[in-house]
Amino acid sequence: MTPVQRTVTKTLIALLMMVGFTIALVPLYDVFCQITGLNGKSASQPRAVVSGEVDESRYVTVQFITRTGSGLPWRLEALNRQVRVHPGQAYEVRFAFVNHGKTASRGRAVPSVSPSEASLHLRKVTCFCFQEQRLEAGEKLELPMMFQLSSDLPEGIHTVTLAYTLYPVAEGPVANNKSTSMQGGDA
């Protein structure tokens, strides 16, 4: 191998490493988001209630916002729009899904937490946002969401806002790829 070929080989290896790094960035970003709470992403998997001390010295207001993205004839409603909880206390709220369309369809509620720092301290025990829902025409469904704010929630946070946006899940195989294989953490 001539020196030039050696250099080119080394450069190409560096290039390939950068390509690999780029591909790895997508899952890394999701991991990073979940560790740091960047962007208000919350965990996409249920977590167990940690029975620890309930910090009864303070209250945190938890608000629920629901929105419907375009293309889905559904309505999502938070039956408890706002609750006051102690950090450490597990709490259950209920949401109603209504399909006012004329056919069955599937949708998914994508969560976002604000302030984003709070998402680190939010433990969802059960949530409809972990999986997609399917509703028949005119069907109404009430689903629970059980959560716990950990007692180490920073002092400065007095209000936590949880927003759920409903998006349609298209029927067919492409749609399945969409939500499972291509995205590591689906927030």
Binding site: T68, G69, S70, G71, R75
Partner: peptide
């Protein structure tokens, strides 16, 4: 008009 079209600029106006 009421529910919008997914993946386009046409928003849902029901809300």
């Amino acid at each position: 008009v009421v529910n919008g079209v997914s993946g386009s600029a046409m928003a849902a106006f029901s809300g």
